[in-house]
Design a protein around this nucleic acid. Structure first.
Length: 328
DNA sequence: ATACCGATCTTTTGCCTTGA
DNA sequence: TCAAGGCAAAAGATCGGTAT
């Protein structure tokens, strides 16, 4: 493997000059720069990442803590990861994916062993136990999700509260007087996951304001769970809001099996990634969950000299084939 | 056998020298 | 005086060598 010394020898300069050509941190004459760049090409030189981290105290690696829990929809989590990965590469960084739920110890491990330059944390809880550790961390951190006490933290997320309200308001505008929420799995609520709580609060708050009767259900990620939820949904409900990507297809299938027409008998509005809404049996009306966009934004914030604060992305609702005005 | 020292790996960067 | 580029120290872990 060629080292910077090999390149320097081949180009007839010192290693420091090669380093400065690579970093662009000071002016190098055109002739010298071209000679160095040619030597780099000819020798197939790539800087040794370990030595570079040792000398610069920077790793060019971002840690992304994204526990892959059974009650989360992995393809949706991967949209966040994909967005973050692409943006990290654009910043000439790599991503270290930590999928094990290590809690605060994992954050300390990454920070104290200098594994990464910054940490992005997903799956944030409302009373998030990692918050004190994140505040005291000697490296930048960004949360995808918003804990109750976000002071001093940098957070980014879809405005789930506004999303919940938006769903109810649009359905109310279409004349629906009774709606049901097919929400995330019970364990997601029990964990106090922040997006689930905020969506539910927005949903019930808007229902109260608009005089819409609302039932909120928690749906385990399996077909039995879907059946139980639909059994528990009042017959008088004319619309379902599905905030649970994993069961979206099953909800449509079970409604069809029960002979309920969508949207003739019941409207269905989902919160899910756009591509997921567009590739169901029928195109689903949905509030877009912009996972890739949020992942990319988190990377920008982690690598930028951003001040702390909460950035919420405004929800966008697109009506497709599953919502309609109430008959009569 | 144990304890400790210092060289080594590769790269970055502040300071210094050279030459016009 | 300034641009261009070299020198040398420093980073942290590891390993060989020397002293006790």
């Amino acid at each position: 493997m060629a080292t910077i010394a090999d390149v320097a020898r081949a180009a007839g300069v010192s290693p420091s000059t090669v380093s400065y050509v690579l970093s662009g941190k000071r002016t190098i004459s055109e002739g010298t720069r071209l000679r160095v760049e040619r030597s780099i090409r000819e020798l197939g030189y790539h800087p040794n990442a370990g030595a570079r981290a040792l000398a610069s105290s920077r790793t060019s690696v971002l840690a992304l803590v994204a526990p892959l829990r059974k009650d989360l929809n992995v393809p949706v989590v991967m949209q966040f990861v994909g967005g973050a990965l692409e943006r990290a590469r654009a910043h000439r960084h790599d991503l270290l994916l930590l999928t094990e739920d290590e809690g605060a110890d994992g954050l300390r491990r990454v920070a104290s062993s200098a594994l990464a330059d910054a940490i992005i944390v997903m799956d944030v809880e409302a009373s998030e136990p990692r918050v004190p550790v994140l505040r005291a961390l000697p490296l930048p951190s960004v949360l995808i999700g918003v804990p109750d006490d976000a002071s001093g933290l940098t957070c980014v997320d879809l405005d789930f509260g506004a999303a919940g309200a938006l769903c109810v308001e649009r359905l109310a505008d279409l004349g629906h007087r009774e709606v049901a929420l097919i929400g995330p799995a019970p364990s997601v609520y029990e964990r106090g996951t922040s997006y689930a709580k905020r969506f539910l609060a927005g949903f019930t708050g808007a229902a109260r304001v608009r005089g819409v009767r609302a039932t909120a259900l928690r749906c385990p990620p399996n077909y039995d769970g879907v059946r139980e939820c639909l059994d528990a949904t009042p017959d008088s409900a004319t619309a379902l809001v599905v905030h649970n990507e994993a069961v979206l297809g099953a909800v449509l299938a079970e409604l069809a099996r029960r002979g309920r027409q969508v949207p003739g008998d019941v409207s269905v509005l989902a919160v899910c990634p756009r591509d997921m809404a567009e590739t169901q049996v029928v195109p689903i009306s949905s509030v877009d969950l912009p996972g890739a966009e949020l992942g990319a934004l988190a990377v920008d914030l982690a690598l930028g000299a951003s001040r702390s604060g909460v950035r919420l992305v405004e929800p966008v609702l697109t009506e497709r084939a599953t919502t309609a005005r109430v008959r009569g």
